[in-house]
Amino acid sequence: MQVIHTFVERLLVGLTRIFTGILVYGNPPAVPKARIYFANHTSHLDLMVILGVFPQCLRDRLHPVAARDYWENGWLRRYLARRVLHCVFLDRHNASQAVQTFQNLAELLGQGESILIFPEGTRGDGGQIGRFHAGLFHLMRQVPNVPLVPIYLDGLARTLPKGEFLPAPNMSKICLGEELHWQEGEAKEDFLERCRASLLCLKEQANGLSVK
C-alpha cells in the first residue's frame, strides 16, 4: 500500500509542477532535522509546492497540520491527508482537543520529525497575509529549541483559488527565509507579529526579485 501512497504523492507533486512553474528563492533544507515550517496559505497547491522543493528524505518526515473539519470530510480528503500527506489533524473549534494536538506535535518534533503549519488557519485570497492564530505560539512554548522556518508562497491563489476545482496554470514563487528562534519571555502578540513580519519581508523580496 505504501507504494501506492508514495505514487499518489509524486503524481500530485508532479502535476503541481505542470500547473505552476515553481521559481525557488532561498535554500531548501537538505538534512532531516526537527523544524517547524510556517507558510502563508492561499491554495490547495501550497503544500504540493512545498513538498516539490523538498528532497524525498525530508518529505517523508514532514507532517502538515490540517484542519480536521475540512480534511476529515469525505473519503478522498481523508485518504490524502492521512495516508499520502501524513497530516496531523487539528480541531479548529475545540480548544481542549487542540491542546492535545499540540502535545502530539511536540512529541513528533522530539523524534526529529518536521511540522508544517499555516498559521493564518485558512486560505486567503493571495492579497494580504492574514492575522496569525495563537497555535504556533503554544507549540513553540513546548519546544523552544526547535528552529522556525518561514516560507512565503506567491501566485498560487491565481493558480487554484479557494472554491475552484480546476487550476489555471501560472508561474509561482516559493521563498524560504532564514531560521527564526524562540526568544525567552517574548509575549504572544510580539512573537506572532515577528513571525508574520518575516513572511512580509519575504513577500517584499519576492516582489522585488521579478522586477529588474
Binding site: 512553474g21 491565481r158 475552484e164 489555471a168 496554470p169 501560472n170 508561474m171
Partner: peptide, 16 residues
C-alpha cells in the same frame, strides 16, 4: 501561455 498569464495581472473572476 503559463508565463504570459503570470506577468499580466488577472483577477479572481478570470479564473474559469
Amino acid at each position: 501561455l503559463r508565463e504570459f498569464i503570470c506577468i499580466i495581472p488577472t483577477r479572481r473572476a478570470d479564473h474559469r
